[in-house]
């Protein structure tokens, strides 16, 4: 019963999370020690109904964590295309980059998550953006041998 709001978000426990919010509404966008919000936890763990619930309550999908991680990058890295689509409908920065110059598209390509790659491309993700190490999405797909990723990008 003493799980944090972030843990409840990751577990998709909407009713328990709602109890926390009823006591302290500021928890909605509270950031943990690394700067992750409940929405980021839900996005990272693929909890789509929780993502929708938090957004409906007014959670800010544009918040960045301490090393500039975003909910969109977390969902893309996890391969959760439905959540990627929901976040893209909420006006997030599609090309936000973080501590190693990763963008949502780079994470989707790295994880070989084709549906996420295509959702991001459909919404105009910058295909030329290179990671700090100089890899563009196409170069990354080739280096990792992700054929489908290459096809989507090309």
């Amino acid at each position: 019963d003493n799980l944090s709001i972030h843990q409840l978000a990751a577990h998709g426990e909407i009713s328990q999370l709602e109890v926390h919010l009823s006591k302290d509404s500021s928890l909605l966008n509270s950031q943990d020690e690394r700067g992750f919000t409940p929405l980021m936890w839900a996005a990272a763990f693929g909890e789509i109904m929780m993502v929708e619930f938090l957004l409906q309550k007014g959670a800010d999908p544009r918040t960045l964590a301490r090393e500039r991680e975003s909910a969109l990058s977390l969902a893309s890295a996890g391969g959760f295309a439905d959540i990627v689509n929901i976040l893209l409908q909420h006006g997030v920065d599609i090309d936000s980059y973080d501590w190693n110059g990763g963008t949502p598209l780079l994470y989707a390509v790295r994880g070989n998550h084709i549906k996420c790659v295509e959702a991001l491309l459909r919404c105009g993700a910058d295909i030329t953006f290179e990671a700090d190490s100089g890899y563009s999405p196409v170069a990354l797909a080739v280096a990792l041998g992700h054929k489908k990723g290459q096809e989507s990008l090309l």
């Binding site: 799980l3 992750f36 977390l74 990763g102």
Partner: peptide, 21 residues
């Protein structure tokens, strides 16, 4: 029901293990 604690989300290093371009 007891929920197990998840570890904090993290993003993988994009190019770990790949040759420098």
């Amino acid at each position: 029901s007891q929920l197990s604690l998840y570890t904090s989300p993290s993003l993988p290093n994009i190019t770990l293990g790949l040759p420098a371009t």
